[in-house]
Each structure stands twice: as C-alpha cells, then as structure tokens.
C-alpha cells in the first residue's frame, strides 16, 4: 500500500513562516482531511506536495522515495494530482478537452485521451457536459469537471483544495459520495482541504488540523471533534466557523 507524505516540511516567505515542520501522510484508498482556519497554511502544504512550492526545509516522500525538486508537471506524471480552490478550468475549451489536456500532458495520444476523458465524465456522471465550453459552467459543475480533469490517467493520489466551497448541503453530499468513490473504487489516496468541517468529519479516515503553519491536532474524526485545541483555534480566529456539535450525516 502506497504512501505520500510531507515530512517535517517548513516554508518561509520572506522570513514569515507559512509552515513549520509539518508532517502529513496520505495513504492509498484512504481519505485524509486537512482543516484549519484561514491562513493556516493548508494550500501551501498542497503546493509543497505538488511541486508548486519548494519547501525551505523537509521533504516529500512518495512510496518511500524522496520526490526531490520536481517541477509541477513532473510531480503530476508521478501520479500526484490536485485541484485548485478557484477551479482554474481551461475556460475557452470544451469540458471534454479540459480532461483531454491531462491525458496528453501524461503522454496519451489525443485519440486515447478523448476516450479516457469520455469514460471519466461518464464515471463521474457528467457526460452531458462534455461539449459545453468550460467557462460557461455553473460553479458546482466546474468543481466536478476539475476533479475529472485531475483524475485522468488514474493518479495514485489526489489533493482536493476546497472542493465544496460555495456548495449547498445537497451538492456537498453528492460531492462527498464522489470523493468516497474515488478512494474506494479507484484506490486513490485522497487529501481534502475543506472549510466545511462537518463534511470533513463525516468523510475522512484521518484528519490533520493546521493553525498558523503548525499541526495542532491530528487523529480520527472522533478525536478531532473532542479536541479543545481545535475548538479554540476555530473560535479564536474565525468566529463564523464553529465545529458542529454532532456529526453531520452525509
């Protein structure tokens, strides 16, 4: 069973520590959650894991081997995929071409890529969007297309950066089901960054809580829910986000 991990990773921007000695492990077929208030360093950690940010200290280990200083496209070719908070679809291209880009980026012919892309749209359940221009899609569809694009070529790991932001409860439930299928059916190791703490608690096998660039707590959802530190981090810095008293059933 494979692992992707960040080991003792620190990142400093002009002297300001965005991450200090953070360790996080993602396991094939498991869903890990990364939560924390705004500015905690969650996206920075995803950037480190995907080659967009070179850590000041520490390493990223893929299946026992350090990744070294690979460029983002090289990291993707090793099977580590990601999505972005803002979607970042190729807005002028049709949905099918958005998925095809990953296919050709990974070395497929266009013929193979289009076949794989169609199969992926079908698996996610958005075949109907195939020929729509990506820039015209509503928000929630955009998110699902971005996940489809990241899943092309069957990555071993997928890192989802706030995939449920702005979604209604029903849409978030649908998204949770998709994420479960990604882990269970594709055997993918999933890391999900989410502000919707209820969703993370209901979905993840393991949760890491970041605050001000450091891990303040980690464990199974039940531990996180009980943690005073987590409650304090959330109440102290972002009053509008509070931990749900009981698990939100998804």
């Amino acid at each position: 069973m494979g692992h992707l991990s960040a080991e003792y990773v620190s990142v400093a921007f002009a002297g300001l520590k965005a991450l200090s000695s953070v360790t996080l492990r993602i396991q094939s077929g498991h869903i890990s959650g990364l939560i924390g208030p705004n500015g905690a360093g969650k996206t920075t950690l995803v950037n480190v894991l995907t080659g967009f940010q070179i850590p000041t200290e520490g390493t990223v280990i893929l299946n026992g081997q350090p990744l070294g200083r690979l460029k983002p496209h090289e990291v993707r070719r090793r099977g580590i995929a990601r999505t972005f908070q803002s979607g970042r679809l190729f807005r002028d291209l049709p949905v099918i071409d958005n998925l095809e880009v990953t296919g050709v980026g990974l070395g497929m012919s266009r013929r193979t890529a289009v076949a794989e892309a169609e199969a992926m749209l079908d698996w996610i359940g958005i075949s109907a969007l195939s020929s729509r221009i990506a820039g015209t899609l509503p928000y929630t569809d955009e998110r699902r297309v971005a996940i489809g694009r990241a899943l092309m070529g069957r990555p071993a790991y997928i890192l989802l950066d706030e995939p449920a932001a702005g979604m209604s409860a029903a849409e978030a439930t649908e998204l949770s089901n998709l994420v479960r299928r990604i882990a269970r059916d594709l055997g993918c190791g999933v890391l999900i960054i989410e502000h919707n703490v209820g969703l993370v608690l209901g979905l993840c096998d393991h949760i890491v809580v970041l605050d001000s660039g450091a891990v303040i707590e980690e464990g199974v959802p039940a531990d996180i829910r009980k943690s005073e530190k987590v409650r304090h981090a959330y109440m102290g810095t972002a009053a509008e986000t509070s931990l749900p008293a009981e698990e939100v059933m998804l």
Binding site: H73, R88, F90, L93, V101, T102, G105
Partner: peptide, 11 residues
C-alpha cells in the same frame, strides 16, 4: 488559458 492548471495536468 491557465498555466498553473496546465502544469498541474502534466503539461
């Protein structure tokens, strides 16, 4: 259109 996303797509 999206250099960051293209790089993340293996381009």
């Amino acid at each position: 259109d999206e250099p960051t996303a293209a790089a993340a797509s293996g381009v």
